[in-house]
Design a protein around this nucleic acid. Sequence first.
DNA 1: TGGAATAATAAGGTCAACCATAACATTTGG
DNA 2: CCAAATGTTATGGTTGACCTTATTATTCCA
Lengths: 221, 221
Amino acid sequence: MSVPHLSESTEMYLKAMVELSGTEAVMIGRLAERLNVTPVSANEMVRRLGEQGLVSHKPYKGVTLTEKGNEVACNVIRRQRLWECFLYDHLKIEWSQVYEFACSLEHATAPQVTEALANFLGNPQTCPRGNPIPDKNGSFIPLDGILLSEAKVGDTVTILAVNATATDVLKYLQEKNILPGQKMTVLEAAPLQGPLMLKVGSKEVALGLSLAEFVIVKSNR
Amino acid sequence: MSVPHLSESTEMYLKAMVELSGTEAVMIGRLAERLNVTPVSANEMVRRLGEQGLVSHKPYKGVTLTEKGNEVACNVIRRQRLWECFLYDHLKIEWSQVYEFACSLEHATAPQVTEALANFLGNPQTCPRGNPIPDKNGSFIPLDGILLSEAKVGDTVTILAVNATATDVLKYLQEKNILPGQKMTVLEAAPLQGPLMLKVGSKEVALGLSLAEFVIVKSNR
DNA sequence: TGGAATAATAAGGTCAACCATAACATTTGG
DNA sequence: CCAAATGTTATGGTTGACCTTATTATTCCA
Ligand SMILES: [Mn+2]
Ligand SMILES: [Mn+2]
Ligand SMILES: [Mn+2]
Ligand SMILES: [Mn+2]
């Protein structure tokens, strides 16, 4: 009847593809990096995913999700983000740890449990990191924002979402108060990939550019 | 630092040992049966578990959990039963399906999540099937009851727990109202391993002996 | 007490998901 | 436009957790 249960590894590859680029092609190197495997391993895995019709790989051009692969990926993301809500809102787990714990649970969650959980939570629209939660069919409204790293000096922005997944990165951002809903002003952008100087609340914060790439913001007017 | 994460398979072998016999030795054949693998496979796995110091195997005498193995097993059971509570009480999942869904989640649950969940649930003492939930240290008070299959004709008993794990068995028992808390009377025990005739509420129910072995009861007075 | 049932061991496979090393292909920026 | 960086493919390994078939050992009860 249903899908013969995809492995955790399979689900993580598909999810990583969406997290890395939405619907764009992803280079195997990026995938490998994200998943902490060698490029050769990622290549092999992509071949297997291709054989299952989940991705299509154009050599030297990157990997893209098929319709089917995208559906699976969005479903994993739905489970992931629903668990994030539960862990944060009900179990009172640390904001910075919620992603990693949810990332285990997501692979152990049957469709019936997913839907019962969504219902229990009141069908939330966003996770604690600010990202939209796909609906049962996998569709969701992408955030209408820009990367903080692309904001202009002088801009005052509101954080829509934090896209980091590594616990240490999340912890660092949490400490600096870089959280969804937070307003801040870009005071200065240092040259040579230098840090952004931000005014967050009453504090000045220096944020490395690559960290700023994890932050999705909306310009205020 | 902590244990290097035991595989799902490892956790299931250890849990099965407790479920099958508490602290008694388990024959590899029973283990194999329960886990749906061949005896040869169970043997190999038991060897690996032995190498990790989780069990000790006396050929022809059965397998027993070491101290360490028992601790792990009880911890898995704790996670399992806490999830059963959550799924049943909060997500309103079917009683008969709760075990199988919890049996996936149990392997994906970090200690921090386990404790936060216990707290959220109000540190329940029993799961929906009536079994005690081990505390953080793995200790729990075993049920003080007998198998329904050993009850005498004429006995009136109260169901303490249902130890079945297969969803179809649980569904069958649920349909017959064989549930924790239920009172019933043993009307007749057919010869030659024949079924027990029970008076459950206002209904008469015929229950096969091997099914009755899943039911733990307490004689009323 | 001897044979059937059960258990254990041996031997040889499979499969998914990783690894390393090496050779080769393509892209791309300086 | 060419060389370095990146990506791909080929080979050959490993590990855990399964499998089958065959042989041997033990138990235990009729
Ligand atoms: Mn995950
Ligand atoms: Mn399980
Ligand atoms: Mn072998
Ligand atoms: Mn090979």
